[in-house]
Write a protein that binds this DNA or RNA. Structure first.
Lengths: 77, 77
DNA sequence: AGTAAAATATCCCGGTCGGGAATTTTGCTA
DNA sequence: TAGCAAAATTCCCGACCGGGATATTTTACT
């Protein structure tokens, strides 16, 4: 879960696993359908709070773990 | 990691553990200092992409895990 | 193949982000 | 304890993004 696209795929997969439609999940999470569409499309400018609300509605929780190759990514390596 | 505030504390703690200043982390992540300040303050409207960039600069990765009490949170239970 | 439902893109306004300077807070030392 | 230096937070303004409702395209099922 490193990029917005990764997050997007994971969310979409989780929603499908629960057999929820976008409108249903959006309503359950208290966000608009458009937001969910863009979130699942990997838009990097989605708001964190609403993203977490969606995860909550999916029954998911977010954990921070050290990276595999654990060297912090610098801006211009 | 359920609310923006949780995320905020975790990020702040991680930054301190690495003995990085806000300006340094912001530069490494390619975001503005003000963004980092607000992110660490738990602002729910921060953008996901930049938040992930910060995590990357901290050497952290985000994992989605089923919730403890795993029933999906509905909007108005 | 046809139709109905679902997913995606568009319109406009309010809100957020970025950069630099000033102000407050933190923490360290004499 | 007092005092200073570094760090963190706040402020202002221009440009771009998020949100609801509608229109259009894509998907799925009979």
């Amino acid at each position: 879960m490193t990029t917005p696209s990764d997050l997007a795929s994971a969310i979409k997969a989780a929603r499908r696993a629960l057999k929820l439609r976008q409108a249903e999940l959006a309503a359950a999470a208290g966000v608009g359908v458009r937001f969910l569409v863009e979130l699942e499309a990997g838009k990097p400018t989605a708001q964190v709070g609403k993203m977490l609300a969606v995860l909550g509605a999916l029954g998911l929780d977010c954990q921070l773990v050290p990276r595999s190759g654990k060297a912090p990514e610098r801006r211009s390596p």
